[in-house]
């Protein structure tokens, strides 16, 4: 084990961590608003990746160029999911809440499998490819781009939530639905908006991942599981903390692979989830 390998792993871990953070931020936002875990979050990511893939395959539009389109499409999907499904189960039993989104996940995943087949697809010759080397360390340019863009999107989300009136209204709704409603906030619209923004996060992440990751119907499952771990680490509903949590998950995944066994890296991450929720159920940075 050389220092280079370790450093290289740390860099990869941090780079992937920013992408994980963006995916988890969407999940966390929705949970903070209405205490519902979107079990179809990974499938939304998969749809975003397929969206980016097909715009490239059919019209040879680079994923980076179609990113706004992918994001808008996912925003719409989120709003529609809220209006069509979530709104009706908000006050339902938890079992219903879990299985409504689980059913949606199964539906979307097998829908993609039905339409596109189970093949792994990869976007050939994206705009950004190759790598740069920094004193013996190599960084893939696609990974770097995706990571920085995810970080930028995360920054934008944070700015939106803390500095704009709509963002503050979202936060108020998350804190107290009734009180927010009494202050003249249209909480129904806030819920729909929350689902829109939460899904738009995976829209951005999906388009970015499509540059260098295989696209296939099951691709969302792993990312979604990592997102649950990230959200749990950051504390359910605590959006800013998911950034650090995402980096931790990225590092644990890569270092678990390097130091223990590559085949066991996800097991290490899930073990981290169990340790965190059992030791600090409010998450590492949770306040309550």
């Amino acid at each position: 084990m050389t220092v280079e390998i370790l450093l290289q792993s740390v860099i990869s871990g941090i780079l992937m961590g920013f992408v994980y953070a963006l995916i988890a931020a969407g999940l966390s936002l929705i949970f903070g608003l209405m205490e519902i875990v979107n079990f179809a979050h990974g499938e939304f990511l998969m749809l975003a990746m397929f969206g980016a893939f097909w715009t490239w395959a059919l019209w040879s539009v680079d994923p980076l160029l179609s990113l706004p389109l992918t994001t808008a499409a996912l925003f719409l999907l989120g709003v529609l999911t809220y209006k069509g499904i979530i709104r009706w189960i908000l006050d339902g039993p938890m079992l219903t809440q879990i299985f409504a989104t689980f059913g949606l996940a199964v539906f979307l995943r097998s829908g993609a499998q039905f339409l596109f087949g189970v093949d792994f697809r990869l976007i050939q010759n994206p705009w950004i490819q190759g790598r740069i080397s920094l004193g013996g360390l190599f960084i893939g340019l696609p990974q770097l781009t995706a990571s920085l863009a995810a970080l930028a999107a995360f920054g934008f989300l944070y700015w939106f939530l803390t500095r704009t009136e709509t963002g503050l209204a979202l936060q108020a709704t998350a804190q107290d639905r009734q009180a927010a409603s009494l202050m003249g906030i249209d909480t129904e619209w806030m819920f729909a908006l929350g689902w829109g923004i939460g899904s738009a996060c995976v829209g951005v992440a999906g388009a970015l991942l499509a540059i260098f990751f295989y696209v296939f119907p099951d691709v969302g499952a792993t990312f979604a599981l990592l997102a649950y771990v990230t959200v749990a680490l950051g504390g359910f509903g605590n959006v800013p903390a998911t950034l650090l949590a995402g980096v931790i998950v990225g590092l644990v995944e890569v270092l678990g692979g390097v130091l223990i066994n590559p085949a066991l890296k996800y097991a290490v991450v899930f073990l981290l989830y169990l340790v965190v929720v059992l030791w600090r159920p409010q998450g590492l940075f949770g306040k309550f």
């Binding site: 499904i85 189960i89 339902g92 409504a100 059913g103 539906f107 499998q113 039905f114």
Partner: peptide
Amino acid sequence: ALDLLIYGGLIVLISV
């Protein structure tokens, strides 16, 4: 995976 497609749809429907 047509069976799973129908399962998923049914589960969403029944939940709502």
